[in-house]
């Protein structure tokens, strides 16, 4: 058993759990939280998979993902008007 395979399984399992939370909601904030966690896990997935396939140069990509994830997250929170959205979702 390769150690990177273990890491990969761990990260994929966490992704699945975050995905479940994103499905379940119940509020928008839970979904955003899950999406944010998912972003970090993508960074880890790419880092680990780079080592797994013997090409750690993919780290540049992981680095950029970490930045993009943060920028996207802040843009999202600045952009959306959460009051309406939260109540809409509860009405559903």
């Amino acid at each position: 058993m390769n150690v990177f395979v273990v890491g990969m399984i761990g990260v994929l399992t966490t992704m699945l759990l975050a995905l479940t939370r994103a499905f379940m909601g119940p509020t928008v904030f839970d979904r955003v939280l899950a999406a944010n966690m998912f972003g970090t896990k993508t960074v880890l997935l790419i880092a680990v998979s780079g080592f797994l396939t013997g090409r750690p140069e993919w780290l540049d990509l992981a680095l950029l993902y970490a930045l993009m994830n943060f920028i996207g997250m802040i843009a999202l929170l600045r952009f959306s008007k959460f009051q309406n959205l939260a109540s809409d979702e509860q009405a559903k």
């Binding site: 994103a22 909601g25 998912f38 979702e89």
Partner: peptide, 17 residues
């Protein structure tokens, strides 16, 4: 809920990436 769909589209993009 379209907002939830938008969030999940973000996750979908990360998955396909």
């Amino acid at each position: 809920s379209l907002f939830a769909a938008a969030m999940l589209f973000g996750i979908f993009s990360l998955l396909s990436a």
